[in-house]
Design a binder for these strands. Structure first.
Lengths: 157, 157
DNA sequence: TTAAGGTAGATGCAAACGCATCAACTTCGA
DNA sequence: TCGAAGTTGATGCGTTTGCATCTACCTTAA
């Protein structure tokens, strides 16, 4: 990889990190996170997008939390009646997570308001074409291949 | 705003959120965060980019942390000799933050290795043109205008 | 069949976080 | 000029997080 290409990659990553932080702060400041926090909403939203029950480790891939933190966050949501957690009949180790009707309702209520804020934050400064580009780039990055073994030093372990 | 434009904005935001989470997890898994954690590095990096000393509240804009959390994180970095914190002569409330030479060295060491990982994560799946687009979009989003008063309901408060 | 190794999720515990609040200082209008 | 309001950064405190570890279950191969 050329030096300039490496620099380009790092500059664009920094740019997106800065934008991410700025927008997250802006969204967090909105007065819509009373019933569920942003992180809790993230979990409810991910569950709502998923057909049928979801395994905790699948959920973990989409959420920026450690496995124990997610386990406990889910537990709190269960206690609050927003998420249902049952044993997985096909895998004795696993659990199946799903929204309760109260959880679905909470997700829809908060989600509706949040979507308006998101739409303003992006659509007010980006063209349709830019939003399409952003979506396409995001999908490429998220689906990007896993890191590879790079050094023989690690390979021997 | 049309419904389809609102949907486009939300889809692209979700796409970038997913990519952000996936990449952050990938970077976090790299074995380079022994001396400084990712959040600490974020602070060191932001300070390193800044000409001269920096005010904590400026630093806070770029870092996704609450003001008290940042205040304490900085305090830990000061105790570890990576950051220098002195009173601001021009504003009695303020502080001036700067990297010590050890802090600059730590930032460079970790930053060099991290930059390689970042470069691979992006450049392996994006074209130069896409990286340029991402950078431009990020800058537009980060510089985006502050949220406006939207409803008369809030305006009366 | 069974023991070794791998994976999913939960738990103990110290560290870190966010909210509310405070103290110190600056700014601004009367 | 002086008091009220705003801003900056720190601190008390309850909650949440991550790391290490544990249990339970699945998978694989001898």
């Amino acid at each position: 990889m050329t030096r300039s290409r490496m620099r380009l990659a790092n500059e664009s990553w920094e740019s997106i990190l800065t934008a991410h932080a700025a927008l997250m702060k802006r969204f967090a400041a909105e007065p819509i996170w009373d019933e569920v926090s942003m992180r809790e909403y993230d979990v409810l939203y991910t569950l709502s997008k998923h057909e049928g029950p979801m395994r905790p480790f699948e959920l973990g891939r989409g959420v920026l939390l450690s496995q124990p933190a997610l386990s406990r966050l889910v537990e709190r949501l269960v206690e609050r009646g927003l998420v249902e957690r049952t044993p997985d009949p096909e895998d004795g180790r696993g659990r199946r997570l799903g929204l309760t009707s109260a959880g679905r309702e909470a997700q829809r209520a908060v989600g509706g308001r949040h979507a308006v804020d998101v739409a303003h934050a992006l659509a007010d400064v980006l063209t349709d074409e830019e939003m399409r580009q952003l979506g396409a780039i995001g999908r490429k990055l998220a689906g990007g291949k896993a890191p590879v073994q790079r050094s023989s030093e690690e390979a021997v372990l």
